[in-house]
Amino acid sequence: MELYILLIFMIFGAIVAIEARDLLSSVIAVGAVGFALCLAFLVLKAPDLAITQLVVEILCLIILIRATINRDLPLAIEGRWFFNTVSTIVFVAVFLFFAYTALKELPAFGDPIMSVVKRYIEQGTTETGAVNLVSAVILDFRAYDTLGEATVLFASVIGIMAILRRKGRKKIEEKEDAS
C-alpha cells in the first residue's frame, strides 16, 4: 500500500519536473522523486540501496542547483510538438505491450528463491565471513562486476577532468582574443 502511494507520488513529481516553467522548480521536483525512491527502497527492505540513493541524490541536487541557480536558461518547448507527442505515445505503447508479455512469465516476487541466490543466503556468511550479505555479494561473489563499475566511474571522472581542464580553455580564449 505504502509502495503504491510512493509510486503515484513519484509519477506525479516526474510530470511536475517536466511541465514546470522554472528550471529550479524542475530540479527540486526531480529531487522529490529521488527521495521518494529512497523511501520506496526502505519499504522494500533494502537499506543499503536506500542509503546510497539518499546520499547520491543529495550530491546530485547540490550540483544541479549550483549549476542552475544563477542562470536563466530559456525553455525550448516550441517546435515539433505534434511529432514528439505521437512518437512518445507510440513508444510507450510498444514498451508497455512487451513489458506486459514479458512480466507475465516471471515468477511471483521472492517466490521461489532462485537457485543461485539461495546459496548466497544460506552460505554467504560462512563462506565470506561478512554479516552484510549485500557486501558479501558485491565484494566477494561478484567482485568482478564491482571492478567494472569502478572502471566506469574512473573513466567518467577522467572524461570530466579532461573536458573541464583549464589549459585547453585558455588556449581557445587566447585564439578568440587574437582573432
Binding site: 550540483i63 557486501s135 565484494l139 566477494d140 569502478a150 566511474l153 570530466i160
Partner: peptide, 26 residues
C-alpha cells in the same frame, strides 16, 4: 571478512575523492 574491508576503503577513496574532484572542477 578478509579483503572486504580493504576493498571498501579503496572504493570509498575512489568514489569520495572522485566526486569531490568533479564538483571542484564544475
Amino acid at each position: 571478512a578478509g579483503t572486504m574491508l580493504l576493498n571498501n576503503v579503496a572504493i570509498s577513496l575512489k568514489v569520495g575523492v572522485g566526486l569531490f574532484a568533479i564538483f571542484l572542477a564544475l
